Simulated scan of single mutants.
Amino acid sequence: MFSYSALTDPDLFDLVKSEDEAAFKEIYERYFDVLYIHAYKRLQDKEEAQDVIQEVFTALWDKREYIILTSSLPAYLFTAVRNKILNTLSHRKYESSYIQSLQQFINKGICQTDHLIRENQLQTLIEKEIAALPPKMQEVFSLSRNAHLSHKEIAAELNLSEQTVKKQVNNALRILRTKLGLLIFLYLLFKNNF
């Protein structure tokens, strides 16, 4: 009776080339464990190590007609496993880098988005309260805070005294501080000074 286990690697591989599945099974059983241990030592992941070995043996079967062994079958298999391990490690590193980059982008985006939303809400609230000021006070305050004009420049533009302009700005700030609260008032007071 014929026994595949008694055949040499070159004889088995010749049979594999002629589509002998039993010869392929013998090679698989002969080298799976040692290749798996080698892959596991490098990858430290059972599933990845098993996937690497499966891919190597699948490629061996699929490309059997084109493979020319220039050295021994074990040398060919170990080289194929080593290359798959390097590909896996490279992919793992790339994937980790990509995930870190994506996480940083998400974190930064969430913070920026949250900050922009809060700033827009705050700005809308401030504009609403400024719009509720008496018209002349609103005009003086707008020239002071939005146009960045000095009290003297506002007084000249609106034909008012500097004292009146100063009083209007102070009154506007007092009203806004009462309505908006201290933190929003400080934001309003200092936002144009930075």
Rank of each mutant, 00 (worst) to 15 (best):
R82T: 02
Q104K: 10
Q121Y: 05
A75D: 04
Q100T: 11
L143C: 05
Q103Y: 02
N146P: 00
R145F: 13
S142Y: 13
I106K: 07
I154T: 04
E65W: 08
A132K: 05
L43A: 11
L149R: 09
K128F: 06
H91P: 01
L89Q: 12
Y66H: 11
A59W: 02
S150G: 03
V52D: 03
I68T: 06
R118S: 11
E55Y: 08
I106R: 04
I67S: 04
D62N: 11
Q44K: 12
T113N: 12
S142F: 14
Q54V: 14
T70Y: 07
S96W: 07
K108A: 15
Q112R: 14
K136W: 03
K46V: 14
Q123V: 09
I67M: 03
E153P: 00
S101C: 10
A80K: 02
P74I: 01
I53W: 00
I126M: 05
L43M: 14
N107E: 12
N87W: 06
I106W: 01
H151K: 12
K63L: 07
I117Q: 08
P74E: 01
S144A: 15
V52Q: 00
F57P: 04
I85L: 01
L89Y: 00
I99P: 00
D62T: 10
I53M: 01
T124I: 10
I110D: 07
L125W: 10
Q100E: 13
L122E: 09
L69V: 08
A131N: 10
F141V: 07
S96R: 13
A155C: 08
S90M: 02
F105M: 13
I85G: 01
L69I: 06
E47G: 12
V140Q: 04
Q100R: 15
S142I: 13
T70D: 06
F78Y: 15
S72K: 09
A75L: 04
S150W: 05
K108L: 12
N83P: 01
L73Q: 09
Q138K: 15
L143S: 10
Y94L: 13
R145Q: 15
Q54Y: 14
T124M: 07
R64I: 01
E119H: 09
T58D: 11
S71N: 10
M137A: 04
I126E: 06
A49P: 05
A147C: 03
S97M: 13
L77E: 07
Q50T: 14
Q112E: 15
A59K: 11
A131L: 08
K93V: 03
L73A: 08
E119R: 11
L43N: 12
D45S: 15
N107P: 01
P134I: 02
T124H: 12
Q112G: 12
Y76K: 06
M137Q: 14
A155T: 07
T58Y: 11
S72R: 06
K84Y: 03
